[in-house]
Amino acid sequence: MGKLDGKVAFITGAGRGQGRSHAIRLAQEGADIIAVDIAAPIASVPYPLSTPEDLAETVRLVEALDRRIYARQADVRDKPALKAVYEAGVAELGPVDIVLPNAGIIHHGVKDFSPEEIFRDVIDVNLVGVWNTISLIAPDMVARDAGGAIVLTSSTQGSSGRGGDGSPAGLGYAAAKHGVVGLMRTYANWLSPHNIRVNAVHPTGVATGMILNDALGRWMEENPAGVASAANLMPIGMVDPVDISNAILFLVSDDGRYVTGISLPVDAGFSVK
């Protein structure tokens, strides 16, 4: 018996990184997965994003756990495309119980695009994409009257501006991740009376392709003071994706059945440094 037997989870950014980890961890506990990923480049993003092959690998890994998965490409900024995947996934697997609007990007080190383009891309993916996802699914969860759980992915940058910079990329990322907390609190007030719990996780740096790439590596070399100010209190550089997945599992399972409206840091002490 798994903690999530009979549940269906909708996960964005599921092609790799944290999203893939969440899909696998929830599937290990019995959930079926609707997986969404852009699986394509975004012009202003200076590192490789996921590919169709990455999304196919997520499918393989979930199916190896003997769970069902419906996976399709869609850009979270494109609400009609997201809606089409959601509706098709529900038709295939059943109604959604768990929502993880996880998709996100970072732009450190970008020099070839205007400040307006960079800021807009970060806000549109990291904040508007979260709203697009929840606004599609939450009304159906309320109408179904079966409860559920939503976990938004914020960041240490959603609780502190420490480690950021004055660039449109840094400002956009911090603004989006603070905005995610506002969405979480507002949705928690609306949805908790319907037994739909809404929380946020705040990871420190996570060992994924979003962090482990040449573009961010160059930025870190050029900004040692910013890197030092963003260091964790515990003597580790980054956490693993499964560390975030385990926190999310707690929040979406009955282990966290009375937990709603909180920001849960998984940050190796960053928030108390």
Score class of each variant (00 low, 15 high):
G6W: 04
A14Y: 03
S21E: 02
R25I: 01
A27H: 00
A27F: 00
E29L: 02
V36K: 03
V36Q: 03
P41K: 02
A43Q: 14
Y47Q: 04
P48H: 02
L49G: 05
T51I: 13
E53H: 04
T58M: 02
R60M: 04
V62F: 00
E63A: 03
I69A: 01
Y70N: 06
R72V: 00
A74S: 11
D78G: 02
G89E: 14
V90S: 09
E92V: 00
V96P: 09
I98D: 08
I98P: 08
P101F: 09
G104K: 04
I106N: 14
I106C: 11
E116R: 13
E117P: 02
E117S: 11
F119Q: 08
D121Y: 06
D121P: 04
D121N: 12
D121A: 14
V122Y: 01
V125G: 00
V130K: 00
L136H: 11
L136C: 04
A138N: 10
D140A: 15
I150R: 12
T153Q: 11
G158D: 03
S159K: 13
G163P: 06
G163Q: 12
D165E: 11
A169P: 03
A169L: 08
G170D: 09
G170Q: 07
L171H: 05
A176M: 06
G182H: 13
L183V: 13
M184T: 04
T186K: 13
N189F: 10
W190E: 15
S192L: 01
P193R: 14
N195W: 12
A200G: 04
G205M: 10
M210A: 15
E222W: 04
G226K: 11
V227H: 12
A228H: 11
A230M: 13
V239L: 14
D240N: 12
P241G: 06
D243V: 00
I244M: 12
N246Q: 14
S253A: 06
S253L: 07
D254Q: 11
P265M: 03
V266E: 12
D267W: 07
F270L: 01
K273L: 10
